[in-house]
Design a protein around this nucleic acid. Structure first.
Lengths: 253, 253
DNA sequence: ACTTGACCTTGACGCAACGTCAAGGTGTAA
DNA sequence: TTACACCTTGACGTTGCGTCAAGGTCAAGT
């Protein structure tokens, strides 16, 4: 039996465009071309197409399929195994996505205040992850894996009331920082109060306190644009000012 | 604070190209442009970007995000709910994919004969599904839902030994059909034997036998290119011949 | 012989969300 | 002034086709 594009397309349940495309990328070439240039497929091509569609159903991309069906020596089992890994990873990601979306939905239902909170939570979580990626090794090297992990866990599992307190305190730090900035002096009473508030604020997310870690974080506030921006919202230079205040604070205690 | 593309990019952890793109599609436009044409973003834009990235993390496409962040009246909860449905559907599909890939892998491990078998299984399954889509209503209307469902279930759950028999019988049908074709007569002994073999072959997948259903399937062999192609592999016209033989067979019994 | 109408061809744009050059203007520190 | 980092717009590439568009081919009916 010989088939033109449409015949084969109907047979296999695919469009003629798809067959032209497969020809174009060398995945499935017709057995021959008629005198007028028509693509003519034979039985071998039908069989091969069946293989191709089988692997396509499994979600492999055409480049891999090309290798599998054209190169008999190609390890299709290895390709499938790799493909499986990719799919599993994709599912993990998808599960995470779904749980995040659901969390967001249930938060949105509970009024917009909660929505903001959840948004912030998500943002925090992302911050933690980003931070982990960028500074993870460094901080872990300095303060140990355990501290970092416990800090993250503590933040993400905070209770509702604690969270409200945490938020209030955060705002207080910002307010106090604004006032302290007007003194222009990092060792002023207002500035030192800011540093103290900041220390208490840290208590919500850090399992233990140490001057070194406190100072290290302060340094990061000026080194990392993302943190700097958070405090510079108050006023440009606020992050630097806070860092200086904390330097005095940690030296005094 | 004001930000150029790179500053904002670093702050948010995205590329400048992404910011240009968001500007281009009207998702996030800079607060203003400097005299030399530089994009300048302000605090509002930073906040908006944060929202955008939050929803992006949840996997929403930019078009939806645009609606959510630009149109305050837009129901973000509805968008999220729809998004959730889509994700769940995706996960179902993914689960199915993974199970198919794993089946294929374990089949491939048990030697290439098994690989062929599984491939065929998959193909059959697809055939059943396709067929269901195309003729489902029609057949179901004619013979009842139950018969169709049970036929599918029977085929997909066939035991290993049964399956081997099934395969052998299938080959016998084809061999016998080839021989019968040489007689050129659908009522010949050879042709009637073919029809009988075909009947027995059906017994493997059909829960009950009826002449009507047998004849109906034979009609489908010539009506549907996919089935026709399967038998026309033997020789062009084989499907038609088989149909004719079955017509005689069912009339005689 | 001529006209439909169904089939075939190649070519090229569109899709989502950017990555990645390329060519050229701008800002600033040495 | 020279370097160098930063900015701009423009445009192609990615994946797997869908969807026209403009134009040949083939069998059937008139």
């Amino acid at each position: 039996m010989e088939y033109t594009v449409q015949k084969l397309g109907n047979l296999a349940g695919i469009s003629t465009r798809t067959l032209r495309y497969y020809d174009e990328i060398g995945l499935l070439k017709p057995a021959r071309k008629s005198s007028s240039g028509y693509r003519i497929y034979g039985q071998q091509e039908v069989d091969k197409l069946q293989q191709i569609l089988f692997y396509r159903e499994l979600g492999l991309d055409l480049e891999h399929i090309k290798n599998i069906v054209n190169d008999p020596g190609f390890s299709s089992s290895q390709a499938l195994e790799e493909h499986r890994e990719k799919l599993l990873a994709k599912r993990l990601q998808l599960d995470l996505l779904i749980s995040n979306v659901e969390k967001t939905i249930s938060a949105t239902e509970g009024e917009s205040i909660m929505a903001d909170k959840e948004k912030f939570q998500g943002f925090k979580q992302q911050l933690v992850e980003d931070n982990e990626k960028q500074y993870g090794d460094e901080i872990r090297g300095k303060y140990g894996d355990d501290l970092v992990d416990r800090s993250n866990a503590k933040m993400l599992n905070m209770s509702e009331e604690k969270y409200q307190e945490f938020i209030r305190l955060e705002q207080q730090v910002l307010d106090q920082l604004e006032e302290a900035l007007r003194t222009g002096d990092p060792s002023s009473e207002a500035a030192q109060q800011t540093a103290d508030l900041h220390r208490r604020w840290l208590g919500f997310t850090w399992p233990t306190y140490s001057k070194d870690a406190h100072m290290g974080l302060a340094e990061m506030y000026v080194a990392d644009d993302r943190f700097a921006a958070y405090y510079d919202k108050v006023e440009p230079g606020a992050a630097q000012f806070l860092r200086d205040a904390i330097e005095v604070y940690t030296a005094q205690q």
